[in-house]
Nucleic acid binder design. Structure first.
Lengths: 372, 372
DNA sequence: TTGTACGCGTTATCAA
DNA sequence: TTGATAACGCGTACAA
């Protein structure tokens, strides 16, 4: 029905319907009840326009608003402002135990600042990533937190080029000028190698993460250079096809055949579990026959059989920090991209021991020998 | 600036700004390009009004739309329709390994149908739940999937009373007439007791989940009635304060003191891990001294030390099913609440063995002895 | 079969 | 300091 302007819509007909959700009061309701114009009510209720309104009026409007239980309609606001107070979060798979703490950190920080997270799983599929990215774009997300970055990621380059605000977390993309928060892969791996050398290992292998990810590459590089500091070289190195147990197992079987290492550094914890499986397959025992080290120290990994020695990455803080960087960017507080490297620590557990037929070379926290 | 109606807004000034995101084409852009009125374009593009438009016109509009890369603005649509194609998902804590598979199931099903999930963590705090619920309400979510239900939950009763569409998953609320999807607690516990009795246990204890949750209560009841079928009674039963490892440990310590059981059924896997901890504390060994069984069969639980015998609940399917029920409800396809009970299976692993100084009583898959 | 005219609830801009 | 007005992008009764 065509209603003359200024007339209020007839509120929801009292037909008995199953889902009769009570209509929320609108800004106009508040304005009318407070005897002011909607625009004034809007100004009174909005943080940064409040100063334009006489304090007494502000007070009255706020009183009425809380009395009516008014809260602004974010949809209408978004339509007007082109912002949604919503950010998109892209993870490979929330089912991978590494990501829940990160996501939780992100959500906690966002919530604290009135923002909401929209999460999607990409399964490391660039196509799914693009689809989800577009869907979020359509929903007017103000920015993105990306845990799915590939080392070469046209999607991200494209978006960054268009000025889409985003922060990478955990993984990076090469040559992309955006903020990123990651654990210190290099130091982590270095500590691992120190530890293994300390124990007396000299034949150390590496099950590297996929070369499509920055973490895969970075940890492999770190591994090689850490060995060099001891004048060692890799007993063998195999690159896994994915950060999964299955891929780890396959890679480990290959590795054991190639290099007969007494210790193996895995690209992450899931790969390390795959290494366990491979050892099982061959009737070998960890750490008696082969020591295994993971990366990330994901939840419950210390309760495995045997408890996995791993590098603890502060996942939750990673999420917090990423969210902080994004909101800083969105609010214009910070404008130049920053790379944040969070400190990691080696957690020694039962999966590492001296090599077969040897005792630990020396005691004390391992560090590279002084050169010369 | 006041522009006469009908005039097109001046598109984004070409000022060099950091975040110059390309403006998305609108329905009007499509309409103009196709030489039709926006209303016509709208009808042509919308599934259920398409029949009102001449096929040739439909085709032309669609061509233009894809050519321009048009996709409707969900925000504007929501404002008009009061729907958002978004559903709120409430979980206690995404960091608890039980929930990621559920959430993933929900998101997968929703995505398949054009819906998006908004997830929030409540930490089992009714106040946080209410806050998140309200925030989602404000964002116009079309319905809720609730994994945080308390046995007595005023928030949910209130919302259900107002006709808010929702589906419970995993946990239930008493006397609440809404759809729910859960694992079959009763059958699961029954299988567990069968298994333990099979092994020869007669002194069986229970570390129950918190009585504020339906799962805590249901499993305890099932435990007692399963024992009755064997003319046994609980060696002891202690209720844990929360579904956490810490609470499980505390409860288990109490339980061991009270009843000296040879086997313990834990309310869920996290409690079972707590039981492991308690046994460690006392220098006891599982399963040699005490057998332990969990519930849920959460990821990686089979890789613990020892691998935990548990009841496998199809978490992912739980999520799928819950999402399906909700969308059915939202589309009006189904109107009466349904309770779906998903089948569970016992997964026997290394945490269960015959009691000290005994051999298994009988072989074969356990079932209750014929009465009499 | 298509066009006209509003309005969803909010905020930006101008005028007073 | 406040009010009036338009507009964000879309869907939909009504008219044609």
């Amino acid at each position: 029905m065509a209603v003359p302007p200024g007339t209020r819509r007839p509120r929801q007909a009292p037909i008995a319907t199953l889902s009769r959700v009570a209509p929320r009061p609108t800004l106009r309701d508040v304005a009318t009840a407070a005897g002011v114009h909607p625009a004034t009510a809007s100004r009174a209720l909005n943080e940064d326009t409040r100063s334009l309104v006489r304090p007494a009026t502000v007070e009255r409007v706020r009183q009425v608003a809380t009395a009516l239980g008014y809260s602004p309609n974010p949809i209408a606001r978004s339509l007007k402002t082109n912002r949604s107070e919503t950010v998109g979060v892209l993870v490979p798979d929330i089912t991978n135990p590494v990501f829940p703490p990160i996501v939780r950190g992100v959500e906690d920080f966002l919530a604290e600042h009135g923002y909401t997270a929209l999460t999607a799983n990409t399964d490391n599929d660039p196509e799914r990533a693009a689809l989800n990215f577009a869907a979020m774009q359509a929903r007017q997300v103000d920015g993105y937190i990306i845990a799915t970055a590939r080392r070469d990621d046209p999607l991200l380059h494209d978006a960054a080029g268009r000025g889409v605000p985003m922060v990478l977390v955990n993984r990076q993309t090469e040559g992309l000028d955006v903020s990123a928060v990651t654990g210190d892969d290099s130091v982590g791996i270095s500590r691992v190698v120190d530890h293994l050398v300390d124990l007396g290992h000299t034949r150390i292998g590496h099950v590297a993460g996929p070369s499509s990810t920055s973490t895969g590459i970075a940890r492999e590089r770190a591994f090689r250079s850490a060995l060099e500091r001891y004048d060692l070289s890799a007993a063998a190195a195999v690159t896994a096809q994915a950060f999964t147990e299955a891929a780890g197992r396959t890679a480990m079987l290959e590795l054991l055949e190639a290099g007969a290492p007494t210790a193996v550094v895995a690209g992450n914890d899931l790969l390390a579990i795959g290494c366990y499986d491979a050892l099982d397959d061959l009737g070998l025992e960890c750490p008696r026959d082969v020591s295994v080290v993971g990366f990330n120290d994901m939840p419950f990994i210390g309760r495995l059989r045997p408890p996995l020695t791993s590098v603890r990455v502060p996942q939750y803080e990673l999420g917090i920090e990423a969210a902080r960087l994004l909101l800083d960017r969105l609010s214009g507080r910070s404008t130049t991209p920053r790379s944040v490297l969070l400190p990691v620590t080696l957690v020694v557990r039962g999966s590492t021991a001296p090599p077969p037929g040897a005792r630990a070379r020396r005691r004390g926290r391992g560090s590279a020998p002084s050169p010369g």
